[in-house]
Amino acid sequence: MADDFPAPPEPDSPEDATRGEGLGRSFRQARKEMWVMLGAWIVFFLWVTISCARTAFAEPGEHGEITTFLGMPSWVATGIAIPWVAANLFIIWFALGFMKDTPLPADEPDPELETSPTAE
């Protein structure tokens, strides 16, 4: 697996390293997933906010009756329940279809802090 992620070319300067030329493939993949995730958050945030802001404050009828869907108030169904199901479907696609497995490095030994059985 590690062969899938070859070492990046050596950057010429610190500026190059922070601008992307020296960034590794594993990092770039994680960053791509982060942007998709943030995009999804914005979509669901807008869906819930716009839908609920438009419908959740509607006054019930004269005798207190309101429209329901599957037993719950309609605004909850369209503004919360349906997006919740959609979010779950998106999460399943994101986690099992879009997100890539990345080899995780072995634990880096820390010569300063590693404990030894005898040292005091």
């Binding site: 997933e33 982060m34 995730m37 943030l38 999804a40 958050w41 669901f44 945030f45 819930v48 609920c52 959740a56 909850v76 503004g79 919360i80 997006p83 919740w84 979010a87 779950n88 998106f90 999460i91 994101f94 986690a95 997100m99």
Partner: peptide, 15 residues
């Protein structure tokens, strides 16, 4: 509505 953010918490928090 108050708790609805949890629909996407697993993705945001873990992703």
């Amino acid at each position: 509505w108050w708790i609805s953010g949890y629909m996407i918490v697993p993705l945001v928090a873990l992703g």
